[in-house]
Design a binder for these strands. Structure first.
Lengths: 173, 173
DNA sequence: AACCGATACGTTATAATATAACAATACCTA
DNA sequence: TAGGTATTGTTATATTATAACGTATCGGTT
């Protein structure tokens, strides 16, 4: 089995989707999850929020608020910054968008994020792709060290920058 | 032993210094460490950098770049933003100042940070105090999960917000 | 000492990110 | 359909950060 075969992947949603992954299907599922996330929380996924979310979820990259404005502007709707920020706030509250703190940018949650399992963010500095991966051991270790110091943790930000598997492979060729 | 005694602490530099800790001594040591950090790296701790660092290290809080400008301005030197940002850049490169990514702010490294042991940031949302604590288990877990995904980690940001031991105690009174 | 290249700093302008304040509209639901 | 709440529009402004370019200073070399 060579590296160039089109053998089906084991996972429908690998942490780092390759450049050629079927993003149409991926996006469709992500939108569905967003809809239920709003529904189950009793929140409204309005047209504005849906349009903003669709832009963010159009890729697996983090996107600045003003990027979103420009992209939606190119499609005919010039939004004020505050409108986009409010949409982002609602999407974040619903848990379908996260903020990449180290980049002042926003990315869609493409994973099922079942229940409350916590994820860390892996961000490839070459292809800019972002993946969230479950990492309970990391959060367990954080709780341990926090409790050693009598610290009561509230929000936990873990953002790792580096090279994703695809870019590591390319770099070694 | 009541909670109001002035019993000496076990550590000269606890992760979260109490409100009444001897910051004069603390600052003095922090400045010394900064001087050697610049020296060993062959970098210059200029007057501007020293003044900026002294402001940042005046507390265990994170400070915005414009806060620094205002504080130094109150002391007679009105600096342009870019000057402060350049100083911060140099101080960061020397490893004596870190950026709190989730707050776009900067804080002094008050710990010895011996060798290359990695630290996570604990940030109290009540008293705003920041502590860096060694947490090798956290970084080990991060390496594990990264390698599972074929990810080659480069920079690692771990920022935990919550309540420090002092504020937990106050809140429970 | 005089020179020279590199580093640091000053000055001005502007980019990039984010929120405040208040008016208008849309949406529930009684 | 009336009235309250949530959402969006509109305008202005706050906050964070960098670009571009000139001047000064430092440190090593002749």
């Amino acid at each position: 089995m060579t590296s160039k075969t089109t053998t089906p992947r084991k996972h429908a949603h690998p942490a780092f989707p390759g450049p050629g992954h079927n993003h149409v299907a991926c996006l469709s599922q992500t939108l569905d999850r967003a809809k239920s996330a709003f529904e189950t929380r009793g929140l409204r996924l309005t047209d504005l929020r849906l349009r903003v979310f669709t832009e963010i979820a159009a890729s697996h990259h983090a996107m600045g608020a003003y990027d979103i404005i420009e992209r939606l502007g190119a499609k005919g709707t010039r939004l004020a910054p505050v409108s986009v920020y409010r949409a982002i706030e609602a999407l974040t509250a619903a848990g379908v968008v996260h903020r990449l703190e180290s980049a002042n940018a926003y990315f869609a949650c493409h994973a099922a994020h079942a229940s409350q399992r916590q994820h860390i963010v892996l961000s490839c500095r070459t292809c800019r792709t972002i993946a969230e991966v479950a990492a309970e051991a990391v959060f367990d270790a954080i709780e341990d060290i926090a409790s050693v110091h009598g610290f009561k943790a509230d929000t936990r930000i873990v953002e790792i920058s580096g090279l994703c598997a695809h870019c590591v492979e390319k770099a070694s060729q």
